[in-house]
């Protein structure tokens, strides 16, 4: 049965259905409803909700809880995500699985609380120190966001990696009908063979991101890199919308992608053949596919709620074979369909 739900609530409920029973968080707009939902819901499912003293503490609570091999998550918005970067680096180094929700808002600094996509670099290129990656998923509808939660936890455990669901204030705050995913039976979730649970009847286990011997640390790093390579080879996800006959391919993700879907239809009514290429995994970015389809079109236009972050990956994919243009607004200003249409018309001329 479809229910009219807020984005934050759909994500929270889907996470619980995906087997998450440990949530740590700190209130921050525009995602506080997610924290509130968890506060109400976790006790009902015999889960743990804890409001921490800061995002710095949150991410470390996540670290501790993730050490026990359970499905753990938090949610925050941009300034809070910045504060979590230290712990994210440690968790990546300790190969701990966890799911982060970043409901992006305008920055830098305190910025504002309106929707933005300006944390792309921070999420996909590593906001913390060290050579690490996290899987970044960018749903564009609430249904997709709800569906992706189970996958996020599965990926996190399959690869012992962090997964970030990167959405913006609009996805967080809007309502849409959602068919909630099925309940995962948490009894069936196996305890991983690295989990810290007390060394009963086995040798003690250590989970760290640490080795002072550079050659040993290099071995750990090479193991991470091997994992990232497997993820890049196997887990790329994207959507193509009306690209078969397109002269212009717009690359956009999340909220911006759904706005572009509307624009593509309007542009076609005016005789401009526009298609949308929507990366769903921002990391690993769908370089190969974009490279392939970009060869048959006249223009690539990247549209973002930022001043140009994803465009760097788009250019890497296109590799100079086609013109790559950009349109974006940031700081919490959402480009309207008409503005994007104008940007397309300018290129089409």
């Amino acid at each position: 049965m479809k229910m009219l739900m807020k984005g934050t609530e759909a994500i929270a409920e889907a996470a619980i259905r995906a087997g998450c029973r440990l949530y740590f968080g700190y209130p921050i707009t525009p995602q506080s409803e997610l924290t509130e939902y968890m506060a109400k819901r976790m006790p009902e499912v015999k889960g743990v909700f804890l409001q921490s003293e800061s995002e710095v503490a949150t991410v470390n609570m996540l670290y501790g809880a993730a050490c026990t091999g359970k499905r753990v998550m938090t949610s925050t918005s941009s300034p809070g995500f910045s504060l979590m970067q230290e712990g994210i680096s440690y968790m990546a180094g300790a190969e701990l699985p966890a799911v982060f929700i970043n409901v992006m808002r305008g920055g830098p600094g305190l910025g504002d609380i309106q929707p933005s996509q300006s944390d792309y670099f921070q999420s996909t290129k590593g906001g913390g120190h060290g050579d690490y990656r996290m899987i970044v998923l960018a749903p564009h509808t609430l249904q997709e966001a709800a569906n992706i939660m189970g996958e996020a936890f599965d990926l996190a455990f399959k690869y012992r990696m962090l997964v970030t669901i990167l959405v913006d204030g609009m996805i967080g705050q809007m309502m849409e009908p959602v068919e909630l995913p099925e309940w995962k039976n948490i009894e069936e979730l196996k305890e991983p063979d690295w989990a810290l649970t007390g060394a009963k009847g086995r040798k003690p286990r250590k989970v760290t991101s640490f080795d002072l011997d550079p050659y040993e640390l290099e071995k750990m790093n090479l193991r991470y890199q091997a994992t990232y390579k497997r993820v890049a080879e196997n887990e790329v996800r994207y959507e193509e919308f009306k690209i078969e006959d397109a002269d212009i391919i717009v690359v956009a993700y999340g909220t911006m992608a759904r706005i572009v879907k509307t624009v593509a239809d309007s542009a076609r009514k005016e005789g401009i053949r526009v298609g949308l290429f929507r990366p769903i995994t921002l990391w690993p970015f769908p370089y190969e596919r974009l490279s392939k389809i970009s060869q048959n079109v006249k223009h690539i236009l990247t549209v973002e709620m930022s001043y140009g972050q994803m465009i760097e990956d788009v250019k890497l994919a296109v590799n100079g074979k086609t013109n790559v243009d950009f349109y974006g607004r940031s700081a919490g200003v959402v480009p309207t369909p008409m503005e994007v249409l104008e940007a397309i018309k300018k290129i089409a001329r």
Partner: peptide, 29 residues
Amino acid sequence: WLPSYGPEMRGGTANCTVIVGDEPIGSPV
């Protein structure tokens, strides 16, 4: 259903955008 959110919630003007349709809805704006 897309709300304006932020300072408006605290006593100023509030607005929301609702879109209904029999085809998939792209932009909520």
